[in-house]
Design a protein around this nucleic acid. Structure first.
Lengths: 110, 110
DNA sequence: CATCTATATTGATATTTCTCTATATAGGAA
DNA sequence: TTCCTATATAGAGAAATATCAATATAGATG
């Protein structure tokens, strides 16, 4: 592609998918959407990918792939505790993307 | 896809493409990016697809296709004058999409 | 009318995306 | 160690996307 993908564009692509947008919304409000976890706090540590997989109804490798895309876009971060991997939204990155997009889609003529 | 594409998701997909995002930014600020037109005002009527095609460096059918995607997402509207078609951003729809996205990516727990 | 210009449509191809099954890795439990 | 669970990786197939050349349509011009 002629125009290289910027950070904002990568984030937009990550989020322009129903499954990933759904997951992102879930983990932004994890206590509302997931049961308490034994080995990591839903908010402080993030949501175990196993829970996400069960809830979204896709295969485990597919969910891993979606989470990698969200991670590469920096919209979420991951943390391993024992045998589990937890994903947590990166609030500041999400805000930065929203700000970028808001700015770029402003009309500048007046 | 299990989760149906909502209006917001369709708009996100439309914009999650470098070429289309570029075009949208151009026509949001048309006087900055295009020469004056004879048969339609850049701001009031929109930008002639011919100018967009020349500037973006893609084939005419490809640009037509991109503009259709932006139109179906309601992010732009089109208007035919004589033999030309002009594309103009739909400010209220763009704002609505931005508001939706801002709302959905807010953290709700606290 | 004949021709030129602007845009749309058709059909083909290449690339990317989404998804799965199968398998690998690695930690925990018996 | 052996088995079970959680996650990652590899590889394949299907579907969607991006792109172009060729052609159609429709208005403008001479």
């Amino acid at each position: 592609m002629q125009i290289p993908d910027t950070s904002t564009l990568i984030a937009l692509k990550a989020v322009a998918n129903g499954k990933r947008l759904q997951i992102l919304e879930w983990i932004l409000d994890p206590r509302e959407h997931f049961p308490p976890q034994r080995d990591g706090d839903l908010v402080d540590d993030g949501v175990c990918i196993k829970f996400i997989t069960d809830k979204i109804g896709l295969s485990q490798p597919t969910v891993t792939s979606h989470m990698h895309i969200l991670c590469e876009a920096k919209l979420v971060s991951s943390k391993q505790i024992k045998n589990w991997v937890f994903y947590k939204p990166d609030r500041s990155k999400i805000d930065a993307v929203l700000a970028q997009l808001n700015g770029r889609l402003q009309s500048r003529s007046g």
